[in-house]
Design a protein around this nucleic acid. Structure first.
Lengths: 192, 192
DNA sequence: GTCATATTAGATAGATCGATCTAGCCTTGG
DNA sequence: CCAAGGCTAGATCGATCTATCTAATATGAC
């Protein structure tokens, strides 16, 4: 086989959508960034931009899910420490990328929440999968399932919002501050 | 005078940017929605789409700042109750609007964080003004200024992120759950 | 080697984008 | 009543957008 054109298109799409949003990214730009010929785009994604968007979201969603699991699987760290690590990952990524590398889903999610049902649904599924990873870990730390699910939603919300503020301010302070408070909240919840 | 064309253009821009983002909204669509003639757009906003975007963000940012102040000025409610009220406002707005009426800034903020410096700066200023309102109220409730500022950032982050999740899921649960946890965290912080 | 299929190549269509331009209307001050 | 300028009206430009189309080229099975 050895043809990774389709993969490269997905990677380029994911990166560009993350940095400039769905509507702000043109298909020409995607093929250029992915080093892929224009003709290949509609060969691999006959559904056009929307199909490409849905698959790109699922693609980077799955990649981040693995990153979540990796971060939360560390046996030598408690769950609060894992959450801190995860915030720190985003701090580093934002600084390294010049504030481009935030959440791969959130930008598109907000754009399409009331304009494209397939894209919106893809985003919702990704968020749900991330929450599930976190909730499982919290439940494993002794919380009741419902409580674990609520705290997972809460932590993800705080994380996503902190990225919004940090990217807008070009300053990682919102992420760092939010990480501290969320860590405190989770510590209390696990102790109580 | 009695000419509110400029105002109508700003209102329409703010609403459309909030619902579909900056890149996803065309100037033609804005003039149509605002019932304004095409020629007026460049008369009032010679800087084109970017100027319109900056002013629309400042416009709705200021409006929400007043809403923040109104919500937080209630003398008969403690600050935690005010925060709950604010989350509830968003719950109602999302349900009423069919998931379109979320944060007026966040969508654009994510889109332009690394593509347009003027727009990014406008978003950052709006977020800072909101934080300031909240921080002032927290400081008034007895917290040290630095601590109040941190908790204000945290609460705003949680709020913004919860809107992202709720809009994506077409479900107000993330907002309701996050409101509960944030309220608990603030209660502890004020008591401690 | 040959045929079928997978992939690449890029021209092109038709719509829409942001922006500019000129002409004319309408209000207001004198 | 008459100018001056704020405002409206909309044609139009070049660029870009998504999508489709036809050919050419590579690749793999037999």
């Amino acid at each position: 086989m050895a043809n990774d054109t389709r993969e490269r298109l997905l990677e380029a799409s994911a990166r560009l959508f993350r940095e400039q949003g769905y509507a702000g990214t043109g298909l020409k730009q995607i093929t250029a960034a992915g080093g892929a010929p224009w003709g290949s785009l509609y060969h691999f994604f006959p559904g056009g931009k929307e199909q490409l968007g849905v698959e790109a979201i699922a693609h980077s969603g799955a990649r981040y899910e693995r990153l979540f699991e990796l971060t939360f699987a560390r046996a030598d760290a408690d769950v609060v420490r894992c959450v801190r690590d995860f915030f720190q990952l985003s701090v580093d990524a934002l600084e390294r990328s010049g504030w481009g590398d935030g959440c791969p889903i959130a930008t598109v999610a907000l754009e399409v929440a009331s304009t494209s049902e397939p894209l919106r649904h893809a985003c919702a599924e990704v968020f749900a999968s991330w929450e599930a990873v976190f909730a499982r870990r919290l439940a494993g730390a002794g919380l009741a399932e419902e409580r674990a699910a609520d705290l997972a939603t809460y932590a993800l919300a705080a994380f996503e919002g902190a990225i919004v503020l940090s990217r807008a301010a070009h300053d990682t302070r919102p992420l760092r501050v939010t990480a501290d408070v969320v860590a405190g909240t989770l510590t209390s919840a696990l102790a109580g």
